[in-house]
Simulated assay, not measured.
Amino acid sequence: MKKFIAIITLLLSTSFFVSAQDIDKQEIKATIQKLFDGMRASDKTAVENVFAPNAQLFTIVGGEGETNVRKGKLEDFLNAIAAPHELVFDERIWSYKIETDGMLATAWTEYTFFLGEHMSHCGVNAFQLYKADEEWLILQITDTRKKYDCKTEPTNNSQLTKELDLLLDNWHKAAAKADADAYFGKIAESGIYLGTDKTERWTKEKFWSFAKPYFDKGKAWDFKATKRDIVFGENNKYAWFDELLDTWMGTCRGSGVLKFENGEWLIEQYNLTVTVPNDKIQDVIKAIGENTK
């Protein structure tokens, strides 16, 4: 019996450790995505908030048998983001390799940098991050740059599916944490939210009017996706998704449309419905007092 208990304890502790590592990796990826979302939005404050105060930037420059290390200044980088510019600074990430050890993490990302729709250069970013006050911050970025053999589209949709999975997961988490900027920042200005009531067809502005009292209380709603399917349109500019959600109403279904524009994915439409087992539908019809016969 003691041996059995020891095995169970070991399995549970190992499971917890793996789960904690997975959560850390999701948070690290979210920090990196905030950096590039901020660059695309020319939001100096958002970018500055993901860096440690003493963060450093390096670029490895090679050519004609020489390799040099060029050191950049974080302040210059932030000022370049804030300075007026017509073309969007769009750094697209194709892959993530993340390793953690306690409060220290490294992340290796392949990227291509676009000025608007024009491909500028590509390479890899090597991030060092640390966890401070439950938040992952960037200590250092070292990158490489080249103008040849650069990806301009994902080689397959598996990486893009993971990216949108994370986007939608973080979107739901933002509601649970009452982070209005993160939540409504992922809805397009022309976005439409369809609620469970037949009267609830809201523009972004009307949805905010409905949701604001909940966000002001410090917690809106806590929806967790248990299953999700995503399909992509031509050239990966649109994505359609549907998901099953664990909610206070029971199992709900969310579905919607995402559009890639100006270097970022935004929700154009979201439709929330309550699922009803077939053998309970008559009870539901009676409860709401409507019969469609």
Rank of each mutant, 00 (worst) to 15 (best):
M119R: 15
C150I: 04
M39W: 01
Q26R: 13
A46T: 04
L11D: 02
D229V: 13
Q33C: 05
G38Q: 03
P277W: 05
W240H: 15
N262Y: 08
L87M: 15
A132I: 14
W240S: 11
G185L: 13
D165M: 06
Q33W: 11
I32Q: 02
T247F: 06
L164C: 08
A105D: 00
F113K: 08
F51M: 07
V50L: 04
E261Q: 14
V284C: 02
G123E: 10
T161N: 06
D222I: 05
I32H: 05
E264G: 10
E91T: 04
K212G: 00
F113I: 07
T292R: 06
R145P: 04
L87N: 15
V231I: 15
R40A: 15
I23N: 14
F36Q: 02
E153Q: 13
F89I: 08
K293V: 07
D222Y: 03
Y111P: 05
A83K: 14
A80T: 11
I138D: 01
T152C: 00
K217I: 03
S120L: 06
R70I: 05
Q26Y: 03
S42M: 06
E91I: 01
E91N: 06
L87W: 13
A225R: 12
E234I: 12
K293L: 10
K29T: 15
A211M: 09
E264C: 08
K131Y: 00
K212V: 04
W208Q: 12
K224Q: 15
K217V: 08
S95P: 05
W202M: 09
S42V: 02
K73W: 06
I230M: 06
W240Y: 12
A46K: 14
P154E: 03
N125I: 01
Q269G: 08
F241H: 12
T292P: 04
V274C: 13
G63L: 03
A105Q: 09
D76T: 15
V61Y: 05
K206L: 12
P213N: 00
G123Y: 09
Q128A: 01
E110S: 15
T31V: 03
E64R: 11
L164G: 11
I81S: 05
T226H: 07
I60T: 10
K219Y: 04
V47P: 01
S95L: 05
E75P: 07
I267M: 04
F113Y: 11
D181Y: 01
F215Q: 01
G63Q: 00
K198V: 12
A6P: 10
K44L: 06
D222R: 07
T59E: 13
Q159Y: 15
F207N: 10
I138N: 01
E135R: 10
D222E: 11
Q159G: 15
L167N: 06
R70C: 02
G102T: 10
I7H: 01
T112I: 03
R40F: 06
G62D: 04
E48L: 10
E234G: 05
H85V: 15
G233D: 07
A225Q: 08
T199M: 08
L194H: 07
W202G: 10
S255C: 06
L137A: 02
F232V: 11
I5E: 08
V88M: 11
L137C: 06
T199A: 12
Q26I: 14
D165C: 00
